[in-house]
Amino acid sequence: MEMVNKNTELSGITYYWAQHSFGNLARNKCRMNKDDVALALNHVDQRNKVTNIYIEKDWSIVDESL
């Protein structure tokens, strides 16, 4: 992450922040399946408990499926 901070002239970007941002955007904006998000984040938990930490709740995905 140090290289990202240096190359973009941003500060404060951490690995956790990058994972959280990716997980949240992948699920809520790109509508990726939660299992695929978990796989991309290298999470091995079958119930997605860890992945759920990274993703903000967006009920519009559920609403659209009804």
Rank of each mutant, 00 (worst) to 15 (best):
S11P: 05
S21P: 04
H20R: 10
E2A: 14
L25D: 00
F22Y: 00
K29L: 07
D36S: 11
V44Y: 06
M32P: 01
Q46S: 15
V50D: 06
K57Y: 02
L10E: 06
Q46M: 12
R31F: 03
N28H: 01
F22S: 04
R31G: 02
L66T: 11
L66P: 03
D36Q: 13
I53P: 04
K57F: 04
Q46R: 15
W59H: 09
R31P: 01
D63S: 15
Q46A: 14
S11R: 13
L41A: 10
N24S: 06
V50M: 09
T8A: 13
A40G: 10
D35G: 07
I13D: 04
A18Q: 01
H43E: 09
S21T: 08
Q46K: 13
R31H: 04
D63M: 12
H43D: 00
S60W: 04
Y54C: 07
A40L: 12
V37W: 04
V50K: 07
S21M: 03
L25G: 00
N7F: 07
D63C: 15
E64G: 09
S11D: 01
R27M: 06
K29A: 01
K6V: 08
A18K: 06
E9L: 15
E64L: 15
V44F: 01
S60D: 01
K29W: 03
T51K: 04
K34R: 14
T14G: 06
E2Q: 14
H43R: 12
K6P: 07
G12V: 05
D36L: 15
T14M: 03
I53F: 00
N33W: 10
M32W: 13
E2C: 10
T51M: 09
K6E: 08
G12C: 06
L66S: 11
E9D: 09
K34Q: 12
E56I: 14
I53G: 05
V4T: 14
I53W: 11
A26M: 09
S11T: 13
N33R: 11
D36P: 10
K34V: 13
V44W: 10
A40I: 10
N48C: 12
G12D: 00
W59G: 08
T51A: 05
W17K: 08
K57H: 02
C30L: 09
N24G: 08
I55W: 04
V37P: 03
V62D: 05
L10Y: 08
V37G: 02
V37E: 01
R31T: 03
I13M: 02
K57R: 15
N28G: 00
L41H: 03
Y15N: 07
D35K: 12
G23M: 05
I53S: 08
R47L: 11
I13T: 00
E64F: 14
R27C: 05
V44L: 15
D35E: 09
F22G: 03
M3L: 15
